[in-house]
Structures are given as C-alpha cells and as structure tokens.
Design a protein around this nucleic acid. Structure first.
Length: 422
RNA sequence: GGAGACGUGGCUGAGUGGUCGAAAGCGCCGCACUCGAAAUGCGGUAUCUGGGCAACCGGAUCAGAGGUUCGAAUCCUCUCGUCUCCGCCA
C-alpha cells in the first residue's frame, strides 16, 4: 500500500508504475474515490462536532423540560448523521478496495518488459559443466538411487506429490542444517514460523487479495502460506519498534504450500514445481531509507550467491523486468541455477525489496531518532528452497555411472561421505 | 468439545451511561536542590487524521466489528485473543 497523499501528489508516477508492471489500475478512479471520501468525511466530522457539543450541553442542563427539548432536537441531527455515516461507509469500502490494488513504484533500474523473457542477466558465476556423456535428469538419478519416489508420491499425495527417501531425505536435512548454520553465523535470527496463517498477514504482505487462487484455504478461513515471509512479517504486525532494534534479519524455516493454479501444464515431472516444500527464507526489516534498502537487497542476494558458490553450483543473476514484478516489489533479482537436463538456468532464489509497501499494510513502525514514527522497510530472499535445490545439486554433480558427488560443505552432514552411489 | 472469568495508555491498575483520552503509581524526559549522584520537589509525557505559517481548533481510537442511546471504556450481539476448571489428544 502507498500513502494516499503520495499517490495524489504523484499520480503520473503511479500510473507509470502500473503500466510498467502490466497491472491494470486506474489512478484517476482512485483520486475520484478519494475526493468523495474527503468530502464526505469532512461533512460527517462537522456533524459529529455538532453532536458532541450538544451532548455536552445536555449533560449540564438543569431543568428536565429543557433537557427533553434538546434531546428531541438532537434526534434529527442523529438521523442525518447516521445517513451520512452510512454513505461514508460505502465510499470507504470502494476506496479501500482500490487502495490495496495500487502497485508500488518500481525502481528506475528495472527494465521494461512483459514477462520473465525480458529479464536481464546481470551476473554469471561458475562453469557450465561439460559432460562426456548424456546427463540424466534428477528424476532419473534420484529414482535409480532410491532417493525419491514419484509414483508413490502421486499415489499418496496426488498430482505433484513426492517422497524423499534415504540419501534424498538426508541430503535435504544436510542442506537445511548447512544453510541454517551459515546464516546464524552471519547474524540472522533463526526462526521456525507458522505456515497456517490468518488472513491479515497475507493482506499485509500483498499476497491477498490478488493471489487468492494460488493459496490453500482451510475450513476455518486460514490460509496455508507459500513462503515463510508471510508469518515472519506478520510477527511484527501492529507493533512499534525502536530504531536501535533495526536492522533485524531473520532466517525463517517453514513448510510451504502452493496451489500452482496458473501453471497446470508446467514442470509436471519431478521436484521443480511441487505443492508442498520447505524453505529457509531471509527476511529483513530496516530503517525507512532507500539507500539502506538497496544495500540490504544486494546483501541478501550476495548471501544466496555465496551458498551456491560454496556448493559449486553454476548460476546467473537476472534483474526482473517490470511485468515480472509483484504488486509491492520495487525491484527483484532472481537467481537461476544451472539445470543440465534442461540445458538452462532455472529459478532457485528470488530476492526483492518493498520499501514500506508491506509495513504500511502490516502497520509495522519504528520510532526514529527525531521521535517520529515511520514505517520500516522490508526485504526478503530465498535462502534455500528444498527440494527444488536438489535438482541442480544432483544433476550438476552426477557421474557417468549415475552416482552423485556430495559437495564438500555437505559431507559432514552426510556421514562424511563424498559420493552417493548404489 | 463443555463451563466460567477477562481484554483500559510504555507497564501496573482505577473507572458500570454524560464534564473520561481516561485517576493513581511505576517508567521516561525537563527543571530545581547538589561538587556530582541518590533521595526529594515542580512540570511534561499515546496514536492516527482534517484545517492553519504557527499558537491552536475539529474528528477518531479503552482488543476488533456491529447495535442500543441525544450521549458508550461503561449496556447488548458477534469475532479475535488470554486465563481457570473438565473432557480429548501428538
């Protein structure tokens, strides 16, 4: 959400933002609704002032006759006030409905473009492995080594279901442990956060109302979160922080659930796109300053890159184009890791910053040095999404005989072994 | 799942229909006293919002949403949350 004052003063900027993000949004409609809101609010407040003044008088009046007379008079005022309040309520509803659709302004450095095809590569790391044999897919490799079971996965859990077994399961735990350790060392606060989350944090983070169809909903009207970001941001909802507490960095672990409603035909095999997975997510709250946000954005991206480098996985970083940005994102980098069986990079991390878009919706403020309350800035990036990360990890480290080299940092979590083989 | 109690400012806690944005205490800030500190005394200490250069004036907020009333922290309904007892349970 943006400040309505800001929107009024920068309506061209907001219109451009919507255009760049390919989001259908009519600023003029909002301004009109806001004009109506302001006018009605002023009228209602004037009436309330009248009523308050009269009530005060009634309380002081001595004679019962006078009292009854004044009460009789106020009944008329009350009636017209109620009518106006009713109208105001309607106007507010329309206004709020529009306000939650206002896109955040993308950074000038965000390239124009419709979809991920227009994302621009900004960095490449690592050598793409040249196999002297036809590299196998992670599905083949893992099935052959009994690290995963996809047919029983679908038998039990339905479409996109999977089991991790044996070294597949161990490798997942090794990665969680390794990555958690790495972030704790960097000063991140580790958390295990809820996935079953109420509506408000989803509204606050910007997943609702826009992406309702991508979320699982329970019979109690809670939702299953697709990322630990939702609960982690919700943690400080409606709270006022001290400036000295900032920045705060969290590494949040949670199961993640995604309906993948809009991607039925895509990645139907294997671990690429599953309904249920686990994620360690980096979340940062920092002071309300663009330059600070930018510094942390680079830092969060760097953290993820460092992990990939330590594991020896080739990747590149792309800056996402306007059309590939979410409603609240100012700028986003995707890190895509090399997947040999597809002969291309696939997204494993997504790093973005929001300025105060989320914190305004969530009402997360802090007291600045001058005593003023400000909405904090928020950022997040994947630290590790598992099992998706197993795809590049396994495929890039495969040997001709179908065995898998275990990257050095993970070996201590895998019983000191260097290789997974039959 | 059943029965009951409760939700007030940074904290403790008073307030059961009108002068209550809210007593008192604690905390915090300023001033006085002091060489300094403690103690003491005096004063100040919520947020959002509309108008105004400002002083200031108006509106809203006592978990949240509705309702009754000329008037609600106070009465009624629902929701959320906390606590106690019983039941169930990894």
């Amino acid at each position: 959400m943006l400040d309505i004052k800001f929107i009024r003063e920068n309506k061209d900027l907001v219109a451009m933002a919507a255009k760049k993000k390919l989001i259908k949004f009519d600023v003029d409609e909002l301004i009109k609704a806001d004009d109506k809101r302001r006018e009605k609010l002023a009228a209602v407040e004037a009436k309330r002032a009248e009523q308050n003044a009269a009530s005060e008088k009634i309380a002081k009046v001595e004679t019962p006759q006078e009292r009854l007379y004044m009460i009789e008079q106020m009944k008329a005022v009350k009636e017209s006030l109620q009518k106006e309040e009713e109208e105001l309520k309607e106007i507010m509803k329309e206004w709020q409905g529009l306000m939650v659709q206002v896109p955040n302004i993308p950074d000038v450095s965000v390239p124009e473009g419709e979809d991920d095809g227009a994302n621009q590569e900004i960095r490449v790391w690592g050598e793409i492995p040249k196999f002297k044999f036809q590299p196998k897919s992670h599905t083949e490799l893992m099935t052959a080594l009994d690290m995963a079971d996809f047919s029983r996965g679908t038998k039990v859990a339905g479409f996109r279901g999977y089991f991790l077994k044996n070294d597949g399961a161990r490798l997942a735990f090794a990665l969680w442990q390794y990555v958690l350790d790495m972030y704790v060392e960097k000063g991140f606060t580790p958390m295990v956060v809820p996935s079953l989350v109420r509506r408000e944090p989803f509204m606050g983070t910007g997943y609702l109302p826009q992406s309702e169809e991508d979320l699982y909903k329970t019979q109690d009207n809670d939702y299953l979160s697709g990322t630990g970001e939702v609960a982690t941001m919700g943690y400080f909802m409606d709270e006022t922080l001290e400036k000295a507490q900032l920045p705060m960095k969290f590494i949040s672990f949670s199961p993640c659930f995604r309906r993948e409603a809009g991607s039925h035909g895509k990645d139907t095999q294997g671990l690429m796109r599953v309904h249920e997975f686990f994620k360690l997510e980096q979340v940062v709250l920092c002071e309300a300053d663009h330059a600070t946000s930018v510094v942390f954005h680079e830092e969060l991206t760097q953290n993820a890159e460092q992990m990939l480098q330590n594991l020896g996985l080739p990747y590149h970083v792309v800056v996402n184009c306007g059309g590939d940005l979410g409603l609240g994102q100012v700028k986003k980098y995707d890190i895509e890791t090399w997947v040999p069986s597809e002969n291309k990079y696939r997204e494993t991390h997504s790093s973005s910053y929001f300025h105060d878009f989320q914190t305004r919706r969530l009402n997360i403020r802090y007291r600045d040095a001058d005593g003023k309350l400000k909405f904090a800035h928020s950022l997040n990036n994947t630290a590790l999404a598992s099992p998706r990360i197993l795809i590049p990890l396994i495929e890039n480290n495969q040997n001709e005989d179908g065995s898998i080299r275990i990257p050095e940092p993970l070996q201590r979590y895998m019983g000191g072994r260097e290789t997974i083989f039959r």
